[in-house]
Amino acid sequence: MATIGPNELYFLMQGLKWTLALTIIGFIGGGVFGLAVALARTSEAPFARRFTAGYIAIFQGTPLLMQLFVVYYGVALMGFNVDAWVAVAVAFTLHASAFLGEIWRGGIQAVPKGQTEAANALGLHYVSRMKDVVLPQALRISLPATIGFLVQLIKGTSLAAIVGFVELSRAGQIVSNQTFRPLTVFAIVGIIYFLICWPLSLWGASMERRLQTASR
């Protein structure tokens, strides 16, 4: 049995780097498109509402693993030769957009109706009404759930291993195969995930408490 030395740890850190990169890409892409989804879900146009409702239903109702497969191999089947990075970034963005879109839709609808009415009565148009009045309040309301989803997304990136990404989980598997110390290696991998996700969860919980006291 080989030992777990600096080389192995370095390899794990390389994996961690990809885990974080995938999370950030998914979160930023999902943030931008998720906002668009949330706005479409709450718009007055029935088509936009129905279309995004269908999109959310599909991406919330199927496993992320399957979504990764479909995008990764599906895009190739359609004749596009895309980089694995692009395919995985697209898949995570689509996935995160559906979830964040639904979380923020709830936030937008939780803002009291009187806020929109006051903005309307003052003559504010849609963009200002959303940007200045509704969204700042909606995002505040949605913050705990948004952080919760971010934690899920960090752990969800481990599924990118299936299309050949050596992120943290896959790196752990490789090191474990080389050293024959699966328990030690996966304990280390688990601790790394935990050290990233736990503070976020704590932050989300404290945010939730603060929101509750603020609304009392």
Partner: peptide, 26 residues
């Protein structure tokens, strides 16, 4: 102009910002 039963001030903005938002934007 309209005044509501439940005030409907924008809670995330100061009183001054509540008053200046619409004149600036509209």
């Amino acid at each position: 102009g309209m005044v509501f039963q439940s005030f409907n001030l924008f809670p995330h903005k100061t009183i001054m910002e509540n008053c200046t938002l619409a004149p600036m934007r509209v």
